[in-house]
């Protein structure tokens, strides 16, 4: 109860964590930082989900998310040549897009709290922030690690919002299976890129 209150009262920290995580995954080139961003994101997800769910159940989100990060980390992504972003045009564009997401979230968050009774404003902010960042990320990435990360980000954002209204263990389990499945699929695809590029 005390822990739950702590999460509730300091939920803003989780939103900041999610913002940093989203920014890391979106803006940074290094795969290590992106996977670290993913881990950070799932920490934030755990924090916000714990407001509505028992701590043990909410922890599943974090554990599964970290496992997903680990799977992607050992998938061979480290063996692929790094992608370079053009400075400063691409960076400015991405930073502006990220800013746009934040502005949009500030407008939409009250609507979401209205839609989901009992939804903490931080949960609405966190969920929408991840969904928005994920969508923009998906919009500018067509393949590779970025696509998988963006899908996971969108899904994590949804999971925060869905946790407000659904507390079923089976759903939590199935969503965990989906998260892990996505990570495994992503790892498989990344492995294939490495294999074919090496063969070529």
């Amino acid at each position: 109860m005390i822990v739950s209150n702590f999460f509730d009262q300091n939920a803003i920290i989780a939103v900041i964590l999610l913002g940093i995580a989203g920014g890391l995954m979106f803006l940074v080139n290094s795969w290590r930082w992106r996977v670290a961003g993913l881990a950070l994101m799932y920490l934030g997800v755990f924090w916000l989900v714990a407001i509505s769910w028992p701590l043990g159940l909410a922890a599943i989100k974090m554990v599964v998310g970290w496992m997903a990060g680990a799977i992607l980390g050992v998938s061979g992504v480290n063996l692929l040549p790094p992608t370079r972003r053009r400075w400063p045009t691409e960076w400015i564009f991405l930073a502006l897009a990220f800013l746009l997401v934040i502005v949009a979230v500030s407008r939409l968050a009250p609507v979401i709290t209205d839609w989901f009774p009992g939804c903490h404003p931080a949960q609405a902010w966190g969920g929408l922030l991840l969904i928005g960042t994920g969508l923009i990320h998906l919009g500018v990435a067509s393949r590779g690690l970025r696509t998988i990360l963006s899908i996971l980000t969108i899904l994590a954002g949804f999971e925060i919002l869905y946790a407000v209204v659904e507390t079923s263990t089976l759903v939590a389990g199935l969503l965990a299976v989906v998260t892990l499945g996505l990570a495994l699929t992503g790892a498989y695809l990344l492995g294939n890129i490495y294999e074919t590029e090496n063969a070529g």
Partner: peptide, 10 residues
């Protein structure tokens, strides 16, 4: 179907 395809879709 290009790189920014999803954005265009939106």
């Amino acid at each position: 179907e290009g790189d920014g395809g999803v954005l265009w879709t939106l």
